[in-house]
Design a protein around this nucleic acid. Structure first.
Lengths: 215, 215
DNA sequence: CGGCCAGGTTAACGCTCGCTAACCCGCCGT
DNA sequence: ACGGCGGGTTAGCGAGCGTTAACCTGGCCG
């Protein structure tokens, strides 16, 4: 049990490595995504980083606080990344369609990289204490709002409520990736990213009724 | 507490009403969808149908059994409904596109009607005991397989792994509906159904790279 | 050199949960 | 008339949970 752990001293994370705190967050997100927030015990999270149970409380106020930090983190990264990409695309003067492409590409990037977090993000939100949940919801709302604006600009024929619903639906589409990541036959990452991009763009394109079906 | 309950006797459900067992399943699915399987206690489920805690064990072997029955139920209804619709569309001789439309319409029907179940279906599967989980996964796999066949026939340019990924992604799209059903501004049901249908069809249509983006 | 503190340890508490036990009662068939 | 039983009740057990307490230790700073 207490085999090799004590080596290395307790210095800082040595350049590329993760701090204890980051290790914990990473493992916690993996476990929460796999078995659900309530399905994972603190002892398990501790064990996953080589320490045991209550030692986690040296780094976090509690189990809730870990989930809160994960969800607030990804929500703000999504929003900030989205704002930045949309702004950049717009600055280059290519119009709303390019901005929408940038949003889609950014979201796919997130979804394929931080798969566990994307799962948590729309699955365990209700397990947060009120204050954190409100914060996360606010960030999510802003992110959705950003998308809705761009979508409406790119597809002016689409009424607002339907644009909103379409955005949520496309999130569902893009966020489905984590679930099919099992050892199943799944194309490699660039192929998957390109496919998801086409699917999302095609969905928006035919949302307004313009077609996209039939051959 | 023991106010009005004892009226009505214990006869059968009186024509249109639900049996106790069905009441329990309905409330359990709602609660599980709202707060997660582990987040709901048996006392709560009992209270939701007007009986208390352990009385549930007169109807089910345990909490697991309720979830199992819910998930097996919806998985088989999805599969059977899908097979039937696809077969009917094909029998009418309209080809694979009509069959795909029928599958999409059927799934939307399910998603908009049994919202809680659709949520559970791709969220709480891992909480099942092994035997039930295998059964549910088998049904899901068959349902996916049915879609993949129809999609490949409707869009022959799409390679198999990508068709498979596209099907999963479109499930994510269609199943996203439950989450936006809050008191938010959401179009009425026929509008939502039509929108989802267009989104799904548009996604498949541009999956093969044929376009669907741009205006 | 010595004390502090970051970051671990194990023990234990209290609560909640799923489930069982023991009991009860009103309906229905004989 | 009455026994069985379907379907309820409350009490309570045992396990597992998140969390706290009490203690230990090795490196760094004055």
């Amino acid at each position: 049990m207490t085999s090799r752990s004590r080596a290395e001293g307790a210095s800082r994370p040595a350049a590329g490595a993760l701090s204890r705190r980051e290790q914990i967050l990473r493992e916690a997100s993996r476990l929460f995504a796999e078995r659900g927030f309530h399905g994972v015990g603190v002892d398990e999270i501790g064990a996953a980083v080589g320490i045991s149970g209550p030692a986690l409380y040296r780094h976090f106020a509690g189990k809730d606080a870990m989930l809160a930090e994960l969800l607030v983190g990804i929500s703000s990264r999504l929003r900030e990344g989205g704002e930045a990409r949309a702004a950049r695309a717009r600055a280059s003067g290519q119009g709303a369609e390019a901005a929408l492409d940038a949003l889609i590409a950014g979201h796919i990037e997130f979804a394929l990289t931080d798969r566990a977090l994307i799962t948590l993000h729309d699955r365990e939100l209700d397990r947060l204490p009120d204050a954190d949940r409100r914060r996360v919801r606010q960030l999510q709302r802003q992110y959705v709002e950003l998308w809705v604006e761009v979508v409406r600009e790119a597809h002016p024929a689409l009424p607002d409520p339907q644009a909103r619903a379409a955005v949520h639906a496309v999130f569902g589409l893009l966020n489905s990736t984590p679930r099919l990541s099992r050892p199943h036959t799944l194309p490699d990452r660039p192929t998957t990213a390109a496919l998801l991009h086409r699917l999302a763009r095609g969905a928006f394109a035919s949302a307004a009724g313009g077609g996209g079906g039939r051959g």
